[in-house]
Design a protein around this nucleic acid. Structure first.
Lengths: 333, 333
DNA sequence: TCTGGCTAGTAAAGCGGTTGCGTAAAGTGG
DNA sequence: CCACTTTACGCAACCGCTTTACTAGCCAGA
């Protein structure tokens, strides 16, 4: 590997000049520039990025914190971020925390250590305030998909409430009146918004919601199954369910099936997320699609703006869309 | 941020001593060590990793090239690598190439530029030789999951052939004789091995394979569906299929269903990979599980051995296992 | 008493860039 | 022809850490 010094010697100038020339901080006579160019080509010189980083104190890399990269939703998001970052010459350091506070903090430490210039954070659990408190001390952070209340950084979310409203309305329009909602953690931002959207739609249709028809728990298949089994055990179960996530929806399907019932014959179902597997299911899951890739792209753009000191919008909301498949039918009369 | 120099001053020693002490290259009298420890604690000193990297010429980061991070299989693999790397103090730079040669080369360039100390490569397309040729010039590379023929680096694969054999035997044991194989690209290493395993099992059972019962194409849902539709259009379709991947198996399910037939009632089916969604399907897909996380862990370990100049094994083979779900039944008589 | 071998460190030269000051030489206006 | 501004660069410090080569001081053995 050749160095800037070798280039300088070959071009008969100083390293200062080469460095400035390469960074466009100087205008050189064509002849000098040509000599430098020639030397660079001859030596196949490429700047040592490690040295550059040390000198500049920047790493031209960003970190990305996801709860679980193996979750297709986060994987897709990650891919989009990486894609966009690459375009701007940034590397991405992935870190999947497994929802582990330890690892979240390690990730933040890296940021502080100058390892990375900024951080895109995704989380999927409610914060007890400790994360929020920590974040205050850090530099360039962007929150994606899920809020951490009390943190004052740019945030990018989807229209959770609108989406939930559309999902619920879709069920109402199919003729259902007893529509349950099995959603995410009661304290989690997205779950709160989705619940609100569900209530909106029900209220708009003039339907009174029985509190027993609302269940909140983890965004997981297991919770979906358990909650649905519980509902089915009731005297008069609902005819439709709006699930807070596709994982929950899968659990619901399992529960329904295990009772010898069918989706959508006995229970209509709408999910949220449009995970890649949503259309692999039988029946295909009607769900709310999030603009995953867009979230990632805009997330990176926002972070870059932050790094470049141009102030990005405080809050960006991305629209969602209802994807109709085969898990909704009119109620059996 | 405090520096090693400040620590040295506070502890009344030289930076050399602090550096050596921290890197366990020196043994100090307890009293001196205590002074240094105290200074570090007091100043909340953490070494500047950028400086360390420059000085050492190592980046303590590895690259990971995957065709598509959004594919659950690769995502899981990536998560395992990341996990293991983290434990050893390495960062992981993810790069999903989308099967794009350009991006593959960019990834390799980074490696050369000292961006990373080594690279874990995964690919999913047959190489025309150009990639293999390029790889020869590079340093620390480990190949995971799929071979690039002619490349002389440590490789970690699963027992494709054994797995295929077990899958096929499972169908035979269920009573099937006409068993088709719809597999991956004819020139792709894993597909070749899996086909061989299928032939093994059939030969062992004394069943002659009709060439028309073997189809090779992409590891994709679309190919699976098309191939299966074609088979079903034949005069006497098979009663069972061993699919080269779970994606292919899903396509097969769709095809079977679209003809008004059922899995496993009319067609028994075994996949390969055990993707996270395999058990979400209805019926649950019987398939061959790859030790995904293990692949990742061992992949990192092998790369690290390479970096540390201890020569790792040329080839590691990881066992697979048959996971029985509900897509296999005896043939209808 | 001298030599040699520890012990417990240190000074200084990198690693490969960037950058705040300078400055010699050439050009310009009066 | 002189003072002044450009033009075209260079010197050397700096980023924070590692490492090679060296030394001061002490003790043991001959």
């Amino acid at each position: 590997m050749s160095t800037i010094n070798e280039v300088a010697i070959m071009a008969r100038v100083s390293t200062t000049t080469v460095s400035r020339y390469l960074n466009n901080r100087i205008e050189l006579p064509a002849e000098t520039a040509a000599r430098i160019d020639a030397a660079i080509a001859a030596l196949d010189y490429r700047p040592n990025i490690l040295a550059k980083r040390l000198s500049l104190g920047r790493s031209e890399a960003i970190g990305m914190m996801t709860p679980e990269i193996a979750n297709p939703f986060f994987a897709e998001l990650a891919a989009a971020v990486e894609d966009e970052a690459e375009k701007h010459g940034y590397s991405v350091l992935m870190s999947s925390t497994g929802g582990n506070r330890e690892r979240e903090l390690a990730s933040l430490r890296r940021l502080k250590d100058g390892h990375v210039d900024g951080l895109i954070m995704m989380t999927n659990r409610p914060d007890d305030g400790s994360l929020a408190a920590t974040l205050h001390h850090y530099g360039h952070i962007v929150l994606i998909d899920e809020d951490i209340p009390g943190v004052n950084v740019p945030k990018i979310f989807v229209e959770n409430r609108e989406g939930a409203r559309a999902a619920t309305r879709h069920l109402i329009e199919a003729g259902h009146r007893r529509i349950a909602h099995i959603g995410g953690p009661a304290k989690l931002f997205s779950a709160i918004e989705r619940l609100a959207g569900y209530r909106d739609a029900m209220a708009e249709a003039g339907i009174t919601v029985d509190d027993g028809d609302i269940r909140q728990g983890e965004y997981s298949r297991e919770f979906g199954r358990a909650a649905m089994l519980d509902m089915l055990a009731g005297a008069e179960p609902p005819t439709a369910v709006f699930a807070g996530s596709d994982f929950i929806a899968i659990g619901i399907m399992e529960a329904v099936r295990s009772k010898g019932l069918g989706v959508p014959r006995d229970i209509s179902l709408v999910g949220f997320d449009d995970m890649p597997f949503a259309d692999l299911l039988a029946p295909g899951l009607t769900t709310i699609r999030q603009p995953t890739a867009e979230l990632g792209r805009i997330g990176f753009g926002t972070l870059k703006a932050l790094i470049d000191k141009t102030s990005p919008p405080e809050l960006t909301r991305l629209p969602v869309a209802l994807v109709k498949r085969n898990s909704v039918a009119p109620p059996r009369s």
